[in-house]
């Protein structure tokens, strides 16, 4: 008996080591991939930025394929467009998402929750091109009818993106509200606070770092979203003068032009990708900082 057990465990060990090795290989390849991407984007984009100079970030003229001049490379309106679209979507999505999270975590009866949670998860599974298509055939004509203009606009991208980031905000915020120690809530209720007072003054503040992290992750999704924005934003390279004017974002512009881009134009798109990468890295860094402070 004892011999058998020993044998078996030795076999298990050999198996275990192999599996460990395979897992290590997977982990290394993932890390290698991220460094390859960083290296690739920067090696293509950085020389271009150094050559184009600060004008790349500050100029408003974007004519990369213009065969009639030397090409002007200014991504300022596109960068501003990306930020307007992202922060607007966050502005709409955050109150909706947090309210929904509070409802799910504190108020909703289990039966309602059983319906709502899968629905919200399904929202996360909808492909972005479907969001874009929905925006194009429903939201855009509605905006055109109500407010005039093209319909494809800053506002249309806000609406679509705010829906797209809801699942991220809701699920992480719900978790962090649920993670608030029971004693906080019971203490507050025992002191005579109403349910609403408890939520507002105890639960949300205690879960705030998780909520902030969820918003920043949502922001990362919004700024990186390409297809849906491409379809509803109008993609005009100019700083929009109203929320019903068309706008272009870094991601949409790269996707629009990469098929045609050659030479310096291609490098310019990589440089745009680099700018986007830096912005997203900053956001991810902020998310990590915020969630590290999380009270659990």
């Amino acid at each position: 008996m004892a011999v058998r057990t020993l044998k078996r465990s030795r076999i298990k060990d050999a198996k275990g080591t192999t599996i460990e090795l395979i897992l290590l290989l997977c982990a290394v390849s993932a890390v290698a991939a991220i460094f390859l991407i960083i290296w690739f984007i920067f090696s293509e984009g950085l020389p271009f930025v150094l050559e184009a100079g600060p004008q790349f970030l500050t100029s408003s003229i974007w004519l990369p394929t213009d065969s009639f001049s030397d090409g002007s490379w200014g991504i300022f309106p596109i960068l501003v467009g990306s930020l307007i679209v992202t922060f607007g979507a966050i502005g709409i999505g955050t109150p909706l998402g947090v309210a929904c999270a509070v409802f799910l975590a504190e108020i909703a009866p289990p039966a309602v929750r059983r319906v709502l949670v899968p629905s919200i998860n399904a929202l996360a599974g909808v492909p972005s091109v479907v969001y874009g298509f929905f925006g194009l055939v429903v939201i855009v004509p509605w905006i055109r009818g109500q407010f005039g203009g093209f319909g494809t606009s800053v506002f249309a991208s806000w609406v679509i993106l705010s829906i797209m980031i809801l699942p991220t905000i809701i699920s992480i915020s719900t978790d962090s509200i649920r993670a608030v120690p029971r004693e906080y809530k019971e203490g507050s209720l025992a002191m005579g606070a109403t349910q609403w007072q408890t939520i507002r003054s105890v639960m949300i503040p205690a879960a705030s770092s998780g909520i902030i992290a969820s918003v920043i992750l949502g922001m990362g999704r919004a700024i990186g979203e390409t297809m849906a924005v491409l379809m509803v934003a109008g993609n005009a390279v100019s700083i929009p003068n109203s929320i019903f004017a068309p706008v272009s974002t870094l991601t949409a512009q790269i996707a629009l032009e990469m098929g045609y881009a050659a030479g310096a134009h291609r490098q310019a798109l990589f440089a745009m990708g680099m700018v986007l990468f830096v912005v997203i890295m900053i956001l991810t860094g902020l998310a990590n900082l915020a969630s590290r402070r999380r009270v659990t």
Partner: peptide
């Protein structure tokens, strides 16, 4: 409504109609 930069159709309009001038305003569809 314009095509995106690099589109042959846009290039054709720019060459023939705009005589090399630049497009102004409008949205871009691909």
């Amino acid at each position: 409504i314009n095509r995106e930069q690099g589109s042959g159709t846009r290039d054709g309009v720019q060459t023939i109609v705009l005589k090399g001038g630049n497009f102004a305003g409008g949205i871009v569809l691909s």
